[in-house]
Amino acid sequence: MMLDISGLYASLMHEVKNTLGLMSITLDGVHPTGDPEHDAPLNETRLLCQRVAERLQQALLLYKAVNGQLSPMVDAYSPADVLGELRDEAQALVRDRLKVTVRIADDVPLIWFFDRNLVEMALVNAIHNSIQYARDRILLEASLDDGALCLAVKDDSDGYPEHILECVRNDQPYRSQGTGLGLQFARLVAQAHADRGREGELRLTNEDGAVFRLLLP
């Protein structure tokens, strides 16, 4: 009997991912004591746990995307709700080490059409990246850019290394691990959101820090 190795890997990853999810929700139940010796490793563990789970989730989705199965389920969602949810999640992860805020431009409509789960996964990846490198603050921002919804993650870090910016500019695959996988995923998510012939877009720039923009038509 032939062993279906890729199927085996996929189900193994599923199981690991679910166990990690369980671990993460269990860790959420451990409350900080105010003692840094207790809280610091706890916070670090929660973050690590989420990052691993998220990585696996992306890997599974990339696997599907490679097989042509990544078709977004678009419906109407509130950009403000989505960013609010991500803000609270991020703030809970960093406790008071960083300040996470949301800004919604006045012209952003109450609802927009996208696959919330895919878009959140792409943004969460950018947020976790910022959590690692930001000094004091992370800003989640929604605005309109030439008729497309622009969801941005901005931090006050030193910014993206030049080779990553280069890759995005030239639409090349990312080589570096971790961040590269997440960005590849974000680009796929952006491109999967097409409307009336216009595709979504991933833009990375260095401004006051690293700026990650997902444009959704």
């Binding site: 991912k17 679910n18 990690l20 999810g21 369980l22 993460s24 929700i25 959420d28 989420q50 789970a53 989730q57 709700d81 609010g84 949810e85 609270d88 999640e89 809970a92 789960n117």
Partner: peptide
């Protein structure tokens, strides 16, 4: 739909909504 894994904040936000 809630996709696993999710944490308490996500659950709370979705339920509120």
């Amino acid at each position: 739909y809630l996709i696993k894994p999710f944490n308490a904040e996500i659950l709370r936000h979705r339920l509120d909504g």
